[in-house]
Amino acid sequence: MIGFLFPEVCNQQGDQGYKDWLEINGVSTRVVGGELPTGLAGLVVGDVSEQGSAVLESLLANHWLISEIENGLTVLAIGRSGQIISKIIGVKHFIGSQKSQYVNTEFQDKPVYGFINGRYDLDNLIVESLVGEGRLINCALLGPVGIVNPWFEKYCFDIETASREDLTDHYRKLVSD
């Protein structure tokens, strides 16, 4: 089961739509919050607004997420939420100047397409940190990144959903336009 953390706060640009995508493709999902659910295979933390950043930071104080990463959980943190979680668990994160654009970045030697909106470093748009037995994948590319890039979804959560080559192509063109 893939969890979606605090959707009332972490849903700045369509992150929660990824939940629908997984569900329709037969992947079990669940909204999660203050209590650790059973059967959690991965966790998505959506992007947050400026005010949402402060709220998320306070919600994550003494939160199970921190210990669960240590125990082997994979967390895909989108946009600013990645910067907040990185700060809390003490792993390196990168902040650059304000950008709002389509991007094509390389991660694990493969291309990833998407859109960024915030203060990010173009050389470090996706940063994976190993924390104990788990992973924090800090991703500046917004919510639909796992849908636009099927291999990235497989890399993060070891799942495969419906074919959508035309969607990846659409983003490839948007980046090059």
């Binding site: 369509g14 919510g143 959508r164």
Partner: peptide, 29 residues
């Protein structure tokens, strides 16, 4: 940025007869 389309809940909408426009593909998904 078509990301925000993923924040709209279309559950319960009747089929779309014709879909078009620059971002028809992300909309389809």
């Amino acid at each position: 940025d078509p990301s925000w389309l993923w924040g709209v809940d279309f559950n319960g909408l009747r089929p779309v007869d014709i879909l078009t426009g620059h971002h028809a593909i992300p909309m389809k998904y």
